[in-house]
Amino acid sequence: MTTSITRREVEALSAYLDGQLSEKERIRLERDLQLRADLRALLEDLQRTRGLLRSQPMLRAPRNFTLTPQMAGVKTFKPARRRLVPAISLVSVMAAALFMLVLVGDLVSFGRKPELLQLASQSVPLPMEVEAPAAYEARSLDSRVATEAPPPAEAVAENAFALTTPTPTLEATSQALSLAEAYPPPEAGMAKSADATRDIVTTPTLLTPYPEPLPTMVAQADELPAEELSAEELPAEELKEVETQAQRPPIQTRWNTWRLAEVALGLMALSFGALAYFLARSSRP
């Protein structure tokens, strides 16, 4: 029945149902509909089909499709916290760099300790020239008094660490040696000799430090007379002063300062790094 109906006529019938034809097209189609039964039949079919489709209800959504911030990709992190992350990371990196610097410095200086320890063990008591002024005086006093026992092993080790410190100076020590040699054993010159030596050695020196003791200095120290002075001849006040200076552990304190700096910097780098990581992770959108 519809075989004689063209595609153009079908489109016109469909549009006619929707009121989408122009006035001219509508008049022409209505005239054709009066003349042709096949067109009228098709129009009725299309009208029913259209009616069936339009009878279908508008569906209700089974759930709400509102968006959560996460679905929408909205950033909910706190900007202030986010902005802190680079600064904290920088502090962490700087602390780590300083830590490495201090660690390397410490390791380099520590690398010299074995030879120094060996050097120290060859002549016990240790050569006084390479010790700090206070330790030198204490040891010379000990040798003068000659009443105490030889230094224990710990003291030797401690003195070996002292070798690494730059406190004594070549000039000061050389002067002390020459003065000690200039005052030979005769008892009469002992007090003077001791005074002169003490004056020079205990004088605070701000000269350039040297890292290692010279072998010649060690040899000279071995030749020093062991009992130059007697304790009775030293004034009591001076003796006390010398003892006080001898009790000070400057080298040990400095060694601890290095370790403390390493630990502090290491902890700082770790804690700030962890804080930056936590902040970056928690403020991730």
Binding site: R60, N64, A72
Partner: peptide, 24 residues
């Protein structure tokens, strides 16, 4: 301007129409 609540009000208004189209 990024007001998600305003957009969700539009969603609630149009979700039946959009769901019907998707379902068909």
């Amino acid at each position: 301007r990024g007001d998600l609540e305003a957009f969700n009000r539009l969603v609630l208004h149009y979700q039946d129409v959009i769901f019907t189209q998707a379902y068909r």
